[in-house]
Design a protein around this nucleic acid. Structure first.
Lengths: 342, 342
DNA sequence: ATGAAAGCGCTAACAT
DNA sequence: ATGTTAGCGCTTTCAT
């Protein structure tokens, strides 16, 4: 391209050295100003900043990383299988929370789809000094297979670990037990007494914890629990589970679904059976997915604020990198969203 | 499984120099092997690779960038306002597409939420040599305010530009005109003759193009178009528009909504009016959002495959960076998803 | 085909 | 408080 050499300056991006020259100070001083070193005179700071502004100088990240051995970058790892359900608002929101928090810091966010066929690629990326820390989110699954890397660099997980042997990892999780508990209590408060549940997979923390909250609420109220069927968090699975619930023949005036997708499936199964929501059966979901409001009747559900979860994860990681003391676990609140399915 | 060594060495991450030593060659040669230089003997390549494997060597990105003046990173910019609707599956899918394609390359993805209060931050980031190129996505809006930066570094936009003066930017867009056209033709094919539309904002390319497709189909069929109301792509807006459509008093047996969210709103308004879908009024949406299948009846809609759009954007940018000739515009296909609302 | 050596732009001791 | 001086780990002419 470039037919060069006519005239004109190569117009290279300005370097720290050029700033030093314009400001009439040494490069070290410029560096100090850039990094907010406490020991620089206000006057000098002003002069340097003026030079920076004049030249429109922006520090070169690569050079900085190389010299300081810090990247100012963090990785957000999304396992491939969950990426397929990236359309899942949960994920998108977590990512949003992470990105939002990070934009208030000097960290850069590197989004990584972890290939499951070549897990080493991710591993090498993380160990290759590309980032100062990592965030791992895997929907509902509690997969902490990156735990071992926690010794090599700071890692914060989204969702509590499933295995007990992974308890030394840092994580942020929504208060699933509490959410299921208040949802169930709400049902009870509205006079429902024969409460069934469509539980999530019992090998995932979210599935386990939500069922637990359900049971705790019932126990506290002295109620015997209705039938429980587990499904896979999908609409189709929820519909099936609902049919099985009905097929048990046990009376039932309310159902707690472990997520909104399954609740959506339950609507269909209930309609098939000629049952009306909430008149015959009250229904309550979990996650506060966007579409819940478009169902009819609009779905009452539990909000777990994934954006907050993402922000919390990012905040925690930044602290960890800074070497600040940080608790292993952080639990974000869940709250009931009242609509009209109950 | 390497337990901590009895003797020596702080176990630093291996450098290229160490690889050179182990392989018994110069650093330059190792570098050549790493970068697939054509002029290295197969034997030497083998020896070097063995050393790399033995040491578990991973090149340092910062050093590489600094020396080569390439970052191997690309930025994905999401304007803040749209980030608020990040839960919008459209976005999440585009991001997924981008990330997926990039994971098959050596590029790293830097996700950036562009603060609208401080647009300079993003600008400086892009100009600061942090990335080799950028992707800009702004839902439905056609905002190409970063166009000017296109001269400083390669940029690919999601969605066609709204202003004619931005025609020199590179972009990928879904074939909205075609999508609306086939949806309308489908309605016609099913015997509908009084077809109305809930159009999107007429200051957004997606809104404009979809209405255009609708009109083209009607004109081709020699049908006069039913009433058209525009709304803001939201469910509430869609519901309102539907009410206005009904209030016109004009007969109408089908409605094309410019997106699924508005279609969802229309369901409610139709139900209020005692009209049944699809018996009285056929309804068709656009976007193929996840929740469409959970509506009852399930919504027939147009799929625009945002994942493909994201992949296409990434592919295009990578080519642009490589200096390959690339067409300004790339249009991704749209297709009808038949369900039962028609 | 391979090696030697000079940086890339910055930070971090160490001086002063 | 500011300047000097080495590198950080890699790529890239230029020799050979």
């Amino acid at each position: 391209m470039e037919s060069s050499s006519q005239h004109t300056v190569p117009r290279r991006t300005p370097t720290l050295e050029m700033v030093a020259e314009v400001a009439g100070v040494s490069r070290a001083t410029v560096s100090r100003v850039i990094n907010d070193s406490p020991k620089v005179t206000p006057e000098v700071i002003a002069v340097v900043n003026a030079a920076i502004a004049e030249l429109n100088y922006v520090p070169n990240r690569a050079a900085r990383s190389l010299a300081s051995r810090k990247t100012q970058a963090i990785a957000l790892i999304v396992p491939e299988s969950t990426a397929k359900v990236f359309a899942d608002p949960f994920f998108a929101s977590v990512v949003q929370g992470v990105a939002t928090h990070l934009s208030s810091t000097d960290y850069t966010l590197n989004l990584l789809i972890a290939s499951e066929t070549d897990p080493d690629k991710t591993r090498r990326y993380l160990l290759g000094g590309n980032v100062d820390g990592a965030l791992v989110v895997s929907h509902h699954s509690g997969d902490h297979s990156y735990t071992q890397l926690g010794n090599a660099l700071p890692i914060v997980f989204g969702g509590r670990p499933l295995q007990a042997d992974a308890t030394d990892s840092y994580y942020v999780d929504a208060d699933n037990v509490h959410g299921a508990r208040i949802a169930t209590e709400y049902l009870i408060g509205r006079g429902r007494r024969q409460i069934a549940a469509i539980a999530g997979p019992q090998d995932m923390p979210a599935g386990i914890d939500r069922l637990r909250g359900f049971r705790e609420a019932l126990a506290s109220a002295g109620l015997t629990e209705g039938p429980v069927e587990t499904a896979d968090f999908s609409p189709a699975g929820g519909a099936d589970a609902m049919r099985r619930l009905l097929a048990t023949g046990q009376p039932l005036d309310a159902v707690l679904a472990a997520n909104d997708q399954m609740a959506a499936g339950a609507y269909g199964a209930l309609a098939e059976a000629g049952l009306r929501v909430p008149h015959d059966v009250a229904l309550i979901g979990f996650d506060n997915d966007n579409f819940g409001a478009t169902l009819s009747p609009p779905l009452t559900t539990v909000d777990q604020s994934p954006v907050a979860l993402g922000e919390e994860m990012a905040r925690k990681l930044v602290q960890l990198i800074a070497g600040d003391p940080v608790p292993r676990a952080t639990i974000t609140p869940t709250r009931l969203v009242e609509r009209t399915s109950v």
